[in-house]
Amino acid sequence: MNFSEPDPMVPQPYKVRQIWQETHDTFSLDLEPKGPSLHSEFAPGQFNMLYAFGVGEVPISISACSKNGDGWIHTIRDVGTVTHALHQLREGDTIGLRGPFGSAWPIDESKGSDVVIMAGGIGLAPLRPALYALMESRKNFGDIALLYGARKPEDLLYTDEFESWRGKYGVQVRVTVDNADRTWSGNVGVVTTMIPRVNFDPLQTVAMICGPEIMMRYAVLELRQNGVSEENIYVTMERNMKCAVGFCGHCQFGPAFICKDGPVFRYDRVKPLFSLREV
């Protein structure tokens, strides 16, 4: 048996360093490895499999590195039995973690280009590390825009960071919600309507999109209409996932395994299946 690499099917114990509420139904978990860290490196866009003891396992994108020390932050929406169990965790509790798995956002490939990031709902979580990476070497990129849509103002994630993204790094942050009451003074409308409102050179732009499939389909249409080429658009796909390493067959999307070939795909490579039903 090859002991140099741990069995990818066996979770490693991680400790909850911190858990906090992001919105009314969404929370973040900062997890640190118990014992020696096996891999602290990750690429923006990758995900971990989080195991709630006795309940089950769920794929969750890494939404940031831990603020202090080894480990990662995961932003999770409480929508099912496993995510609910994860929500019940307290600081110091142990959970199982496998990962990181999957493909990454094209950060290096975007050097010298403008970058348009489009996020819908919880889709901002896997894009946040991409944004961090862009901001970290800000001078390597042209205009950066973040177009972020959510259902309601109270569903918006990471709102306390927007000002620094705007001010310190010159990111054009445009936020919109599907509907709101009068207390909201921001934009109302779908996220695609934000595209004409930011500066970018469509011929030199890399677009990274994460959100519900329908939202991504419209976003791609709109970006292409604006002149962004299919080879420069990246989307994420989601399918049922069990093993995360290509053994279980669940996450197939045509020839691709979402877990190892995705979740980030260049649009032109998944285009033939993108709007086909029941694939």
């Binding site: 099912g80 709902g121 959100g211 519900p212 939202m215 419209y218």
Partner: peptide, 23 residues
């Protein structure tokens, strides 16, 4: 046309996952 498309999208409530529908 775009406004109508947008209305339809908003109608779909694409960001909404009802509790118990997820994992």
């Amino acid at each position: 046309g775009k406004t109508m498309d947008a209305s339809r999208l908003q109608l779909m409530n694409v960001y909404g996952i009802k509790s118990s529908e997820g994992v």
